[in-house]
Design a binder for these strands. Structure first.
Lengths: 137, 137
DNA sequence: ATGGACCTTCCCATCATGGGAAGGTCAAGG
DNA sequence: CCTTGACCTTCCCATGATGGGAAGGTCCAT
């Protein structure tokens, strides 16, 4: 099948399939006489695997490892689990950082009257005048 | 003062000061006879404002609005508050998305024995074989 | 005058993705 | 048989915010 059909059946855009090939995430597809890339059922499976992993937020680097483990029938499940837990840890770090930011902003917003008057603790904090929450020092 | 000093005193790298100037976030600095950018105390304040806002995760686009409101003495605090709340909402959306991802992964990881055996629900899920958590369908 | 610390602009890379141009190929219908 | 439209190819560019680094000019202290 051509790249368009592989894209449709895997849920990965043709653009990204070429990109994944370029960076070596998937092997270079066989080419027909016309130069068109040709895909098998197996390739579609592989692409679906990548798509699902991307949806879970795994980076290309991690997916590379996961693909290797996927095709290794003798892999130990602990190897896979380790990658997953590292990823979960990274996500957690991001979550905590974003949560802290959100809470800082909500705290400042709570102090702000939000009316027609110009006085605004949010602006004052950003100006460095604030004693409210000056997280920058 | 030259860009190096402005960078040091504001906490914004010289590289980024030039970038902010290029994208029009801050006005083009006056130039000395030698072509060097020249900064005033006021510029340092503005840069600090930007740095603090960036630290709170505001995008350049939002900071542009905040800077406009900052220099408008008659702004209504509700205008500032609105921007802050929009940003907090965006952060919250990101947090929820990441949390869902993390929990999906932790769930799969919990199902995985993590031992020497090859059986691994994580891989199975990514392969589309899983009935555990196939979030991709 | 020389060296080192500074400044300038310009290009490149990140990460994953999409947009689009220019041009080749194929299949169906007139 | 030819046209048309849907494919395919490669190549370049853009994203957002940031850093790295090269090549070359400037300034100041020794």
């Amino acid at each position: 099948m051509n790249i368009g059909e592989a894209a449709e059946r895997s849920g990965v855009s043709a653009k990204m399939i070429r990109y994944y090939e370029e960076i070596g995430l998937i092997g270079a597809a066989r080419r027909g006489e016309n130069g068109y890339r040709s895909y098998q059922e197996q390739d579609v499976h592989r692409l679906r695997f990548v798509r699902r992993a991307r949806k879970l937020g795994f980076s290309i680097v991690r997916i590379r490892e996961l693909l290797r483990l996927w095709s290794d029938r003798r892999r130990a499940s602990q190897d896979v689990k380790k990658i997953a837990l590292v990823h979960a840890g990274a996500l957690n770090a991001d979550i905590e950082k974003l949560t802290a930011l959100r809470d800082s902003i909500l705290h400042l917003a709570k102090l702000c009257h939000g009316d027609q008057r110009p006085e605004c603790p949010i602006i004052e904090d950003l100006s460095g005048e604030g004693n409210y929450m000056d997280s920058s020092r």
